[in-house]
Design a protein around this nucleic acid. Structure first.
Length: 602
DNA sequence: CATCCTCCTG
DNA sequence: CAGGAGGATG
């Protein structure tokens, strides 16, 4: 549908048709629109509306509106001051809306089995073929472990036993240091060229199976504080690194035959045997191809970098500050090598993985500097005071600098081709009951899981239960747990959509007419609200693809409301449907079993 | 019948 | 966020 076709010269105009008591006219118009909308045929408008039903729906709608309204008003105290004519938009005349609303005929359980074009759908797992590969991978890992161990030993060597009475500081010291060193590449490697020696703590590592590393908890008592600290760090890092690496390798091997290295997507296309999941056409893409909006996205994408001609609306907003560019500076996670992660030989990747993991949080998602956007935040503060709907902004030229939504740095961590989403339930179930991935399965869900789920929401709004199982290997799934988690996402969605609708309406009340003008930026009100909700503490770098989805959602709401679709009781359904198709792949880091804990130390 | 989704409420 | 209702789907 051509966005321009729904553009209205003024927002008030958009709503005037609702406000005016054109009962008949309005109704037919709506139903027409709906019916001629092929993709959303489910929102068919049964034209049979009884008089009493009208009344019923009037109240119903009123209630609903009131809800949103209160929310909006909380943020937009005096919209009328901005656009005089728009004040009455969806506010005052809401009774008069011909509540042609028929029964809550909302079909479309949206997600359900919309064959998620996404990679993350059910994949068959191929066992057996990978045995050889597994071996190979293990060798590699072991070698790497050996190297690491060498470093460890060097550092671990007791310098002067007498100096260290005992690890009184053990609790805090390591943690502090770890946080400090969190980013850089293996810190200890740098200054560890001395001290040969052995700590019983680590000497046995190699002999035991990897998973046992975790159990080697006794710590060398007589190490100098520095060494002890390093040891502590190392041990933890190694534990997570190894388990993660092993997990990934296993997953890949189990799910993907050896030929996966060269042609990831191909190898999987043939695999998707069951689950009605259609062979993902996305190949390597993160955000799957969104059929409906693909063009829109692409357009936006192609527009990026092209100086927009008339941004008269935006300019006033931005001019007070610095030019847009600073805000657009690529975030840390715009990893350069992310381009060709899949073509890299696996062992290289393996190395990178280990070093990265050991380097801790070198995947750009973790922002150790919470005030990441501090510069812009300070601005937006004052600015938002002036502009209630700061949430939306004209599409800046630099938006979506890296349009390919999935070039996260973490791609380097991603063994699996993006299109390969492990959909099996955890690794515990690995054949042969490998001792690895000694995940401490626990009964219920803890706050860590909730937090993780929220972060996952940045990538997937409609996760399947299988996906959830795959990403929470340390959770013993049962009906209850599954439902609860699904409920979580449902709640997330609710909040998300409410925010979107709110912002869209605000934009409309501000006189915005072109949906393309609406864009969610990191310093926008909307973003802050979302970030606050899903990423309290800011310890995660919100992926750009989420911003794009958010922008899209916003635009869709804008269009719908502008077109008066919101008089249809199920007017949101089409939007839900669209959004449900735009789930992205979730980076591997989020899958690691030990993940929740890692969050809490930051 | 089971599962999931939205909406509403507390 | 959890519960529950009502509806859709397979």
């Amino acid at each position: 549908m051509d966005p321009n076709s729904i553009l209205l010269s003024s927002p008030s105009q958009a709503f005037s048709c609702l406000a005016e008591p054109h009962m008949e006219g309005g109704k037919s118009q709506i139903s027409q629109e709906v019916t001629r909308d092929p993709p959303f045929s489910w929102s068919q408008a049964p034209s049979s509306s009884l008089a009493d039903l009208d009344w019923f729906w009037d109240e119903h709608i009123q209630a609903k509106r009131a809800r949103v309204e209160t929310v909006v008003q909380g943020m937009c105290p005096s919209p009328s001051t901005l656009v005089p004519g728009s004040a009455r938009t969806w506010d005052s005349p809401r009774y008069q809306e011909k509540a042609r609303e028929r029964k809550r005929k909302q079909s479309l359980p949206v997600q359900q089995d919309l064959p998620k074009p996404g990679p993350a759908r059910d994949q068959g797992n191929r066992k057996g073929l990978g045995a050889l590969c597994v071996r190979e991978q293990f060798h590699l890992l072991q070698q790497q472990l050996r190297h690491l161990q060498e470093h460890v030993l060097q550092v671990a060597e007791p310098k002067d036993p007498a100096q260290c009475p005992g690890g009184s500081e053990k609790g805090k010291g390591p943690l502090r240091v770890r946080q400090r060193n969190g980013r850089g590449p293996s810190p200890w490697v740098l200054d560890s060229d001395h001290h040969q020696g052995s700590s019983r703590d680590l000497s046995g590592v190699e002999k035991h199976s990897m998973s046992e590393i975790e159990h080697q908890s006794e710590k060398p008592r007589f190490l100098p504080l520095g060494a002890e600290t390093l040891l502590e760090i190392l041990r933890e890092e190694l534990t997570t690194a190894v388990s993660q690496a092993v997990d990934s390798v296993l997953q890949r091997v189990l799910l993907d035959p050896p030929d996966h290295l060269a042609q990831p997507s191909r190898s999987f296309r043939g695999l998707v045997p069951e689950g009605g999941s259609e062979p993902s056409s996305t190949g390597g893409g993160a955000c799957k191809d969104p059929p409906p909006l693909a063009t829109l996205l692409r357009r936006a994408q192609s527009q990026a970098g092209v100086p927009l001609g008339k941004l008269s609306l935006a300019k006033p907003l931005d001019s007070p500050r610095y030019p847009d560019s600073p805000r657009m500076i690529p975030k840390p996670y715009q990893a350069p090598p992310a381009n060709c992660p899949l073509t890299v030989p696996s062992h290289i990747q393996e190395n990178q993985i280990l070093s990265q993991l050991l380097g801790h949080a070198s995947n750009g998602y973790w922002s150790n500097n919470p005030p990441q956007d501090s510069p812009s935040q300070s601005h937006s503060l004052s600015e938002s005071a002036l502009r209630p709907w700061r949430a939306v902004r004209l599409r800046p030229s630099a938006l979506s600098q890296q349009r390919r939504p999935l070039p996260f740095t973490s791609a380097r961590l991603e063994h699996l081709p993006p299109s390969v989403k492990v959909e099996q339930s955890g690794l515990q179930a690995v054949p042969g009951g490998l001792p690895f991935s000694s995940v401490h399965i626990q009964e219920g869900l803890n706050p860590g899981h909730l937090k993780k789920a929220k972060l996952m929401f940045f990538f997937t709004r409609y996760p399947s239960s299988n996906l959830l199982k795959a990403y929470f290997p340390d959770v013993q799934f049962n009906r209850c747990i599954t439902s609860q988690m699904i409920k979580w996402f449902s709640n997330f969605r609710e909040f998300y959509y409410i925010q979107m609708e709110k912002s869209a309406r605000q934009a409309i009340s501000e006189g915005v007419t072109n949906p393309k003008m609406l864009v969610v930026l990191r310093d926008s009100e909307l973003f802050r609200a979302l970030n606050m909700h899903y990423n309290k503490g800011n310890d995660f770098q919100v992926p750009d693809c989420f911003l794009e989805i958010a922008s899209l959602t916003l635009q869709e709401f804008f269009r719908a409301v502008s077109a008066g679709k919101d008089s249809d009781p199920s007017w949101k359904k089409p939007i839900y449907k669209i959004i449900s198709k735009l789930d992205s792949d979730i980076p591997e880091i989020l899958k690691s079993s030990g993940y929740p804990q890692q969050l809490f130390r930051s």
